[in-house]
C-alpha cells in the first residue's frame, strides 16, 4: 500500500471535493464534471496508442460502445444483482465491460496492426462503422432505439446520487491515470515509444513490435470499455449513433489538443472539449443559429496548423510547474 500513498491521498481529496461540488453546483454542472472525468479516461487511454505507441486509431468510440452495451445489457438482465451489491455490482459490470472491449481490441488489433498510419486509421474507422451497422440490426440490444432507462448509480444514505457517481467515476479515473502513468515510466513505456520511433531498430534489439502494439491496443480498449460503461450509467440512454465517427474524432482531438504523450494534457483537453460546446451554446441565442460545429471544425484546422503539438507537447503538467518555479528563483 505504501506505493499508493499519493493516489490514495488524491482520492480522499477528490471525495471531499465531491461533497463540496454536491452542495455548490446544480445538476447541469455536476453532470458536466462527471462527463469530463469519463472522457478523460477515454482520451488518456487513446493517448497510449496514438501518443506513446505512435499508431493511429480512429475507432476508440467503437470500443466505448462495446463497453457501454455490455454494461447496459448486464444491468438490464441482472437488476437484482445491482440491488443487493450496490457499487460493487457496478464495479463488476465495468470490469466485464472493459474486458470484453479489450477482447475486441485484440481481435481488431492483431490483424490490422501490421498496417501503418492512414491505413490503420481507416481500418479502425471501419471497425467502428461496422459495429454501428451491427448494433443497428441487433434487436435484443434495442436496434436503432438503443437501450434506455439504464440503472443509474445508487444513493447511499445522506450521500446523494451525484456524490456516489462522482466517487465511483473518479475511482476509475485515478486507476486509469495511475496505471497508464506508471506503466509508461519503465520498460513498457520505453517499448511503446521504441515502436513509435523506429520499428526496425526495435526489432533488432529483440523487441517484438507486434506484441507491443497489440498490448497497447488491448490496454487502451480496456479503459475505453470502462469509459463506455460509465457513460451508460451516467447518461442512462445509449444508441448506436452516439458512439459513431464523431465521438471517435472528438477523442482523437482531445489527445492531439492536449499533446501526444501527455496524460495531463489529455485531461485538460477533455475538460476543454466537454465544456466548450456548452459555453458556445449561449452564443446560439445571439446568432440565432447553431454555429458550434462549424467553429469546432474550423478550430480543428487552425490548431493543427498553428499549434501542431497541442497544449502541453509531450510533457506532463509537473514539468511546466517545475519550469515556472525555476523561473521565479
Amino acid at each position: 500500500m505504501k506505493n499508493f500513498k499519493l493516489p490514495l491521498l488524491t482520492y480522499i481529496v477528490l471525495l471531499v471535493l465531491g461533497l463540496i461540488l454536491q452542495f455548490s453546483f446544480n445538476a447541469y454542472i455536476q453532470i458536466l464534471i462527471l462527463q469530463i472525468l469519463m472522457y478523460s479516461i477515454a482520451s488518456m487511454s487513446l493517448n497510449l496508442v496514438n501518443g506513446f505507441t505512435g499508431q493511429f486509431s480512429l475507432g476508440h468510440a467503437g470500443f466505448m460502445a462495446v463497453g457501454a452495451y455490455t454494461s447496459a445489457f448486464l444491468s438490464q438482465t441482472f437488476p437484482a444483482f445491482l440491488e443487493t451489491t450496490h457499487l460493487f455490482g457496478f464495479f463488476i459490470f465495468s470490469l466485464i465491460a472493459g474486458l470484453i472491449a479489450s477482447f475486441f481490441g485484440y481481435l481488431v488489433g492483431l490483424p490490422s496492426l501490421r498496417l501503418k498510419g492512414d491505413y490503420l486509421a481507416i481500418v479502425t474507422l471501419g471497425f467502428g462503422e461496422i459495429l454501428r451497422v451491427f448494433l443497428l440490426n441487433i434487436e435484443p440490444l434495442g436496434a436503432a432505439r438503443g437501450i434506455s432507462g439504464i440503472i443509474p448509480y445508487p444513493e447511499l444514505g445522506f450521500l446523494d446520487r451525484f456524490w456516489v457517481s462522482f466517487a465511483y467515476v473518479s475511482f476509475w479515473f485515478l486507476v486509469c491515470l495511475v496505471f497508464l502513468w506508471r506503466i509508461t515510466r519503465g520498460r513498457y513505456g520505453r517499448q511503446f515509444m521504441s515502436v513509435r520511433e523506429d520499428e526496425v531498430a526495435a526489432l533488432s534489439l529483440g523487441l517484438s513490435t507486434t506484441q507491443i502494439k497489440v498490448s497497447s491496443f488491448v490496454i487502451a480498449s480496456f479503459f475505453a470499455g470502462v469509459a463506455g460503461s460509465l457513460y451508460a450509467h451516467l447518461i442512462s440512454i445509449i444508441t448506436p449513433t452516439v458512439f459513431g465517427f464523431m465521438m471517435s474524432v472528438n477523442i482523437v482531438v482531445m489527445v492531439v489538443l492536449g499533446g501526444m504523450g501527455s496524460f495531463s494534457g489529455s485531461i485538460i483537453a477533455a475538460a476543454f472539449m466537454t465544456v466548450m460546446p456548452e459555453v458556445l451554446r449561449s452564443l446560439q441565442s445571439v446568432t440565432g443559429i447553431d454555429l458550434r460545429m462549424i467553429l469546432f471544425s474550423l478550430s480543428l484546422i487552425l490548431i493543427m496548423i498553428f499549434k501542431p503539438h497541442g497544449l502541453l507537447g509531450e510533457h506532463e503538467l509537473p514539468y511546466f510547474l517545475k519550469k515556472m518555479r525555476r523561473k521565479k528563483v
Binding site: N50, G117, V252, V253, V256, M260, M293, I294, S297, L298
Partner: peptide, 21 residues
C-alpha cells in the same frame, strides 16, 4: 511535411467544416 496524424486530422476538420457549413 507535418506529422501524418496532424494532416489527417486537418483533412477530417475540413470535411466536417464543409458538411456543417
Amino acid at each position: 511535411g507535418a506529422p501524418k496524424l496532424n494532416i489527417l486530422i486537418t483533412a477530417i476538420g475540413v470535411s466536417l467544416f464543409l458538411e456543417f457549413s
